[in-house]
Amino acid sequence: MTPKHTVQAYQAELQQLRDRLEAMTELVYDMIANAREALKTGDVELAEQTVQLDHQVNQQEVEIDRFCLEILVRRQSVAGDLRFILAAMKMVTQLERIGDQAASVCHAVTDQPPGLQPAGADLVDDVAQAAKTVIDKAITAFLQEGVDLAFEAIDADDDVNEEYDRASRKLLSQMSDGELAMETGISIQSIAKRFERMADCATNIAEAIIFALDAQDIRHRDKLASAPTGNKV
């Protein structure tokens, strides 16, 4: 264990920030699970409850951002502390977006387009499952401060994209065969897209965690590496 801060209030503030992030993470995690469940079962009530949770998530985003600002103002954080706070600010933005996506899925459930259950839900669930893997790994990486897990999360995002492409192709063929109404097909397509987006956000979280723990900025690195003018700053 690294030693604690001499200023105990600072130590407590950083711990509180971590606690708040965990609470927000749990909330978002519940929303994702609920959205999947509601989609499978067509449980409109659960979908509506989950939409309500999104307000809490939004509220927490604002509060944690403000708390980070306060710590920065008062403590002029540097090094690992600074990276942790910057990562926290990125994390809350991504968590809020995941929450929005989950809420959107729930909205689609409450609209009850015909043919969503069970056929549509089955089509999407593979994407949802792959996305959940990414999100699980990213969140565990945060809780356990594991850089390796964060990298696994980023790698797992490829599976989500594959599942999404597969689901899209299936949808397209079913729609062109006339098995699926065009309206329903588009709705299911957009739900699949939402899960794919959640995984993207979780990837961003994993990148923020790697930055916080290891000071590596791995965002867009394949693109930057191949950029024509390699002006390293």
Binding site: T2, P3, K4, H5, T6, V7, Y10, R75, S77, V78, A79, G80, D81, L82, R83, A215
Partner: peptide, 19 residues
């Protein structure tokens, strides 16, 4: 040095962990 020090001693000192 102030964003990503290489040594743990540096990190502890600049972040205010004076043991």
């Amino acid at each position: 040095l102030f964003s990503n020090p290489s040594k743990q001693e540096t990190e502890d000192y600049i972040t205010g962990k004076f043991g």
